[in-house]
Amino acid sequence: MKAYTNTYCSIYKVALLVLLCFTGLVKNGYGQDSTATTQDTTAHEAEEQTPTPKKSKPVKETFASIWILDNQTVVVPVKGTMELDFMHRFGTIENGYQDFFGLFAGTNIRLAGNYVPIDKLMVGLSFTEYNLTWEGYAKYALLQQTQDNKIPVSVTYYGDVSIDTKADPTGTLYPHFSDRMMFFNQLIFARKISDRFSIQVAPSITHVNTVQGFYPGDTTADGKSVLEKEMHHDHFAIAFSGKIKLSNTLNLLLNYDQPITKHMTNNPNPNLSAGLEIVTSAHAFQVLIGNYRYITPSRNNYYNNNNYQDGQWLIGFNITRLWNF
């Protein structure tokens, strides 16, 4: 237990260090670093000459899409944008040719529609194959990093409620409707370091109303799942993500999700993922390899049982299509 405590203390320290590094970069200026100093000087001179200072502009394209592999990015599209998302996660690659590296194995699919009704707010609805899960979610840009570096980071809140709608004819899996619900809340901090490089840190909390064990029949005398007693309802995690721009339309994406809360049993595994992103005027295509298979963020963070150390990788893709109204 002490070893666990030490491990997680270390993780907290690393997370804190990354956040400090994040804000420590404030003075160095963002992105177009080579021109930032000149621009600042020019802007300062201009301010002295003109009575109304220029309004700070937010940085452009910290990330090219609302998704970075398995996580939301800090990005909220412009007002009036409608988006459709198509996401697939194939089976794990372990069986090799027998199921063609998971491509012919069971697939998890998510269809989603998002809309930005007012500035900085995106709302959406999605339907995922696994457990026939519906999600309603909202994303709000609390702070936007500015080109003049007056605001050094972007901060976005993301909240997601999910409801399993799979059949339960015996009434044993979900005795109450609320047992079908999970909640996911995340604060996303991001910084565009340079024109080519953006990073993101996103701590999250998942709340699971009723812990569904992997063995639902394994219950105690009072009828509760054994795992329910051994897993906390609240689960903290933190995600680290980064984008490296390879060309104007191609990005390399990296992501790591670290569980923080320690449960008595069935601790979820971390997720490591990498992918390529192709961006066009109205689309973003992400092809990835990673460990998360559920797509629903609360379930990914709470129940991930794929372990990258055991070679349990899977291939997936995200496609987004945008319309502006």
């Binding site: 177009q32 021109t35 024109d195 060309s247 104007n248 339309t249 961006v279 066009t280 005027s281």
Partner: peptide, 17 residues
């Protein structure tokens, strides 16, 4: 140069196809 680079990036994304 900065404006040309910005224009080039937007061109690649929105116009080039």
């Amino acid at each position: 140069a900065a404006s040309i680079n910005t224009g080039k990036a937007e061109w690649a994304k929105h116009c080039q196809s």
